[in-house]
Design a protein around this nucleic acid. Structure first.
Lengths: 136, 136
DNA sequence: CGGCATCCTGTTTGATACTG
DNA sequence: CAGTATCAAACAGGATGCCG
């Protein structure tokens, strides 16, 4: 599947699962960096069941700051994961909803969520074993 | 990556896909924070085909610093994703290999990689569309 | 309500140098 | 070869105040 990095002159390439990927523009890194952000994937999952308003999301993720909420939403919108709809009510309300792209990300994301739940105990076990043995 | 356990709040709970999860000890965040790290998931994928030595990994991921390589490997070892084996040769060689846990993570990870590759064009398109429209 | 701008902090990362 | 140590830069993130 994957093997060795090739360092052709000037052009750096990494090979993952047999597919060469330039490091300047690696799809995997690009996506992973985003879903790995502290709030991004949580936000996608939050919107899984349907659109939410700004203040709803704030309540839904209690420990996010307004700043990070705004920023995360803008980032996700920029990448096409969700759409922002402003309703010109008084006071104004803004609704965020997953796009088709966002919905499709939900699939691999849920796989990962499932895996996390299944294996979290094992990780915690490994962690305390590691911490325990080195110490004394 | 090295998350100091911070326990400030009492009993806050977030609901993902209908499942309530404590925020102090959320499996999803715990795992996502790791696979989302800049190097972690790349490292797991690098070891997918078999064990590698320290310097091999360095070459495999050309733009990682020695410091980050060491640290990432220690973190992943701590969480039970890989094992570290020292061969008392001269000079010493150290081999890193995925554990069963690490191998199992490979499955959802590959799903994500696949998704990334499939949808990267769409993301790039959305991104430039977003950047273009706000402009002037 | 739904933001944005500013300031300020701790954490993450990279460069560099040194060791067994 | 496979690390450790140290320093400085970069960045993420929180707190606060202001605005349409």
């Amino acid at each position: 599947m994957n093997r060795m990095t090739q360092r052709t002159e000037g052009e750096r390439v990494i090979i993952i699962d047999g597919v060469a990927m330039s490091m300047d523009n690696c799809p995997v890194r690009d996506v992973l960096d985003h879903i790995g952000g502290k709030w991004n994937s949580l936000m996608i999952l939050a919107l899984a069941d349907g659109p939410m308003r700004f203040s709803q999301l704030r309540r839904f993720i209690p420990d996010i700051s307004q700043r990070m909420l705004t920023q995360t939403l803008r980032d996700l919108q920029r990448d096409g994961y969700l759409i922002r709809t402003v309703y010109p009510t008084q006071p104004p309300s803004v609704e965020y909803a997953l796009t088709e792209l966002g919905q499709s990300l939900l699939v691999p994301l849920r796989t990962l969520v499932q895996w996390s739940q299944d294996n979290h105990p094992a990780i915690r076990r490994a962690r305390s074993a590691f911490d325990g043995q080195g110490r004394d």
